[in-house]
Amino acid sequence: MVAPGDVRGTVFIAERYDGYCCGLDGRDGPNLACAQCGRPVATRIDDCSLWQAVWLDPGAVHPVSADASPRQAVGWEDLREHRPGIPPVQPLGQWNPVWEAAVAAALAHLLAVSAGTRVTVPDGLVADTFRRALDALLPPRPPARTLALAGPGLPAVTTDIALVPQHPQTGERWAPSRAADVAPLSWDIWSYLAFHHDRRPVPGAGTMPEDARRDDPPPLTPGPFRPDWAVFLSTLARLPEVRKPWLRDIYDHVKDRPYASPF
Score class of each variant (00 low, 15 high):
R199A: 05
T117C: 11
G38T: 07
L56Q: 10
V54R: 12
A108Q: 09
V202K: 03
D67W: 12
P4W: 12
A144G: 14
D47Y: 08
A112E: 11
R178G: 00
P30F: 06
H109L: 00
P142S: 06
K255W: 14
I13E: 10
M208T: 15
G171N: 02
G38F: 05
P91D: 12
Y20M: 01
S191M: 09
R226L: 02
H82K: 13
R214P: 01
A68Q: 15
A33C: 08
S114Y: 05
E81V: 06
Q52H: 15
R178F: 01
W187A: 03
A136F: 01
D123S: 02
P139I: 04
V98C: 00
S65Q: 15
G19M: 01
V254L: 09
R173G: 10
W190Y: 11
G206F: 07
R243D: 15
E100T: 04
P203W: 03
A42L: 06
L137S: 01
V2C: 14
Q72F: 03
H62I: 01
F232H: 04
D216A: 06
T159G: 05
V103T: 13
A205M: 00
E15D: 14
I250S: 03
I161L: 10
V61T: 15
S49N: 13
G116K: 08
K244V: 12
P155N: 12
A212R: 13
C21Y: 09
L236P: 05
G5N: 08
T129E: 03
R132W: 03
L111R: 01
H62S: 15
L193R: 09
S186W: 07
G75D: 11
L138I: 01
G93Y: 03
V2W: 05
Q72H: 15
P203R: 06
W55H: 15
D215I: 01
A108W: 03
L147W: 06
S234W: 03
A42I: 02
L134H: 05
F195L: 07
K244C: 02
A115G: 15
A115T: 10
H109V: 00
W55S: 11
H109I: 04
L24Q: 13
P122H: 13
C21S: 13
A105V: 05
P176E: 05
P91G: 02
Y17H: 10
Y20G: 00
G85C: 10
P218N: 02
H253L: 08
T159Q: 06
F12P: 14
V164Q: 01
L149M: 08
R199W: 09
P139Q: 09
V98G: 07
P262K: 07
W76L: 08
A3K: 09
L233F: 11
D78Q: 15
V54W: 11
D256L: 12
Q36M: 01
L56H: 11
V231G: 02
